[in-house]
Design a protein around this nucleic acid. Structure first.
Length: 270
DNA sequence: CGAGGGACCTGGTTGC
DNA sequence: TGCAACCAGGTCCCTC
């Protein structure tokens, strides 16, 4: 499910229920996620959650003793539910809180992760090499331009590389390239500064708008309150193969890049 | 170092 | 109706 907007929507959704609460119990029904959920996750018990942060597509639950690192993979989602709510299939972990709520991780494909670290979380191997956050001033067209010199990869793969910028997954890569009028197969190293400035702006705009709309629900993504995201109604290219381009009316084309479906307008994107 | 592809999983949809 | 093939929002890790 989740690209950056969906993770941010999840973060915002769980924060009121989780922030400042102490953990009563951690129930791990199935530890075999992308990496095994470590036994040390039980160190959460008795600790108070002092912050709920997001870095890239990782959610971070901070305490005074360590940080839980949560990733939703392709199919993960979080719900806030009352204690005692019966667990269904793929409900792998519950974090039970003192306020009578529990934070439940459901993840059919189990590409997600739940880890525990006592190091400063920014230094964790999974986070240390991540690129800038797209919605901050650390990320700009100048940065894209500079990082792309000499790179032969297609621009779509380039902006989906988490070392370049985090949080741009397949949907929003397609959308922001359309908005910027850039062909997804264009060589990253052959795009000029002006066009990269436009692309960076469109990435920011698309992601921010998707967060406002509660993310994109394609199949089963819901926020932590169970509501779907409405950005799907604003998608211009993703999932609209053969439908007319919103700008010129030509049918949108779909190709496969790196195994990912890529939709674009042959006329508007160069 | 960069590029490319396989690997990890389940479930829904499509097509014979 | 049954079953196989393919597809899906991510990203690590291995080769060349």
């Amino acid at each position: 499910m989740p690209e950056l907007p969906e993770v941010e929507v999840s973060r915002q959704g769980i924060t009121p229920f989780v922030l400042g609460e102490s953990v009563m119990r951690v129930v791990v029904r199935n530890a075999s996620l992308r990496w095994p959920v470590p036994a040390e996750i039980q160190q959460l018990v008795g600790l108070t959650i002092t912050a709920v942060r997001r870095r890239a597509k990782y959610l971070l639950l901070d305490t005074d003793w360590g940080t839980a690192i949560l990733h939703l993979g392709m199919s993960g989602s979080l719900r806030v539910l009352p204690h005692g709510t019966p667990a269904g299939k793929h409900d792998h972990v519950d974090i039970e809180l003192a306020n009578g709520k529990l934070l439940r991780l459901n993840d059919p494909r189990r590409f997600g992760a739940l880890l525990w670290t006592r190091e400063p979380v920014e230094q964790h191997p999974l986070l240390v090499k991540q690129g800038p956050e797209p919605l901050t001033d650390d990320f700009s067209g100048d940065w894209l331009y500079q990082r792309s010199r000499g790179r032969k990869v297609a621009v779509k793969q380039f902006i989906m590389d988490n070392h370049v910028v985090v949080g741009v997954g397949n949907i929003y890569a397609n959308e922001s390239l359309f908005a910027a009028g850039i062909h997804p197969q264009r060589e990253a190293g052959r795009i000029g500064l002006t066009r990269y400035r436009k692309l960076a702006e469109e990435i920011k705009t698309v992601l921010a708008r998707a967060i406002e709309q509660g993310g994109t629900t394609l199949r089963d993504f819901t926020g932590s309150d169970g509501k779907p995201g409405y950005f799907v109604q604003e998608l211009q290219v993703y999932g609209r193969t053969e439908q007319p381009c919103a700008h010129c009316g030509a049918p949108l084309r779909e190709i496969r890049m790196n195994g990912r479906s890529t939709v674009f307008c042959q006329r508007c994107q160069r």
